[in-house]
Design a protein around this nucleic acid. Structure first.
Lengths: 150, 150, 150, 150
DNA sequence: TTTT
DNA sequence: TTTT
């Protein structure tokens, strides 16, 4: 009886870190920035940036490893997950992450532009970037991550 | 050039706390629970609950003060906001909140049910609880689909 | 590289019609109403109702058959689909439907209310209506926010 | 008590048509394509395209007039609206449109790419494309279209 | 009528 | 730590 849905369009802050659990399951982590601009009372434009901790599993982690790079514009659909951990002093801390269920690579890679950003040398692979969201005709349910310790 | 959107349907964990800033602006805070159930490897059903810190401003805070009570089912549309604060030891901590932009009171107040939750004695005001955004349809039959092959 | 997503919270206009394709696949169709109220220039409140043609497949059609009745409040997440058909005069017509991917039964059945809507006599089955996706939280107090400055 | 929300990421099929009502209010209309790809039983990849009739009002229509061109990738958030009209034979027909409330220009204009699409000569103005979604600090409500005949 |  |  509930819904926990997040929709983000933003820019990747760092190249993803990819880990593999002992089970072999791939996990990708990276920050995604969204920005809001408003006009303050004094007429000045103010931009605030929100950083989201994105976590992707399995197939989406693989797509991230291949195609997601710093600066890339992304659409992410997922859910909010707050987990606790113990910090170095043994105190309980909380961190909130976005578990992505759908990802779309938007626009083109920043290195593709003539404006000279130039931090990417992998231009060619963008051309073959597959959609990360595929609709199967048999409507099989998306696989869960029930057995994962998160 | 970005989107930061959250859509939640869940149940209120505590009656809202209402504060008023020096400017007179009202702010409401309350936790909202969303739950997921999945079947573990051993076949057992497992439910995990996610708690969201909801923050409402101005008019929505007023609506919350009047109509939002513990147990109430809500639709919240808003955005994610992570802010930092200093804990009692002077260490920087982060907390993630959902700033609500749209709220809909769903179903009926829990005190209305015969199931005896019974933490609410304000049943009557729920009956007249106005929608915070739109009204109920009148359930007149949808017109104009008589000749359509549905 | 695209997104086609619809999120609706509304009320069911008619009991669903259930069909079974030759392949045995179940399909449910029913109208869902969403309403908007605004204040016209003359200060009068005006409500407009939008009717959505909902289409559910397979497991969701089965849930609809069991638990969705006229008047019921639903959350539907899905996508827009416009299809063409030939009308009785052989002209091409178009109809737009919402293919539901997620459904949540909200609130309680209308027959449960004391307010006398009374178009439903199947109260008892609603009481045991399971969530079509997740469970209810247990309303244990959210833990871990005692020391946070909310 | 209802929600009618659409979220689209797609490509513009034609340059927008801009009209001005007698009241001076600007209206923009254009088609937006979203595509789904799935693998059929025979292993073949099949892509289906859905065309959405986008309608933008006032300020968003002005932004569309300046920055939206054929081929452009857009994020649109809005609501579904089905309206009736009489066709040339006096029969009642229905058409479904998406009234956009938020628009984000994604990626870069197609004419910017070195791949030579080249239907756009307005490259420079993209650089100064303002965000179409501005958050004001005073949280003023978005202006409605109450007085419009739709 | 778009795009990959 | 991103982007316009």
């Amino acid at each position: 009886m509930s819904v926990n849905k997040v929709i983000l369009v933003g820019n990747v802050g760092k190249d993803p870190e990819i880990r593999h659990l002992d089970s072999g399951v791939a996990v990708a982590n990276f920050p995604l920035a969204t920005s809001e601009t408003y006009t303050a009372k004094n007429g000045e434009k103010v931009t605030t940036t929100e950083w989201h901790n994105i976590v992707l599993w399995r197939g989406l982690a693989d797509v991230a490893e291949k195609y997601v790079t710093k600066g890339r514009q992304l659409y992410i659909e997922g859910r909010i997950r707050t987990r606790s951990y113990d910090d170095k002093d043994g105190n309980k801390r909380y961190t909130t992450e976005i578990y992505g269920d759908v990802m779309q690579l938007l626009g083109s890679a920043p290195g593709n532009q003539s404006s000279g950003g130039g931090n990417s040398s992998n231009t060619s692979q963008q051309a073959s970037a597959p959609s990360s969201q595929v609709n199967e005709p048999d409507f099989s349910e998306p696989e869960g991550d029930e057995d994962l310790p998160f």
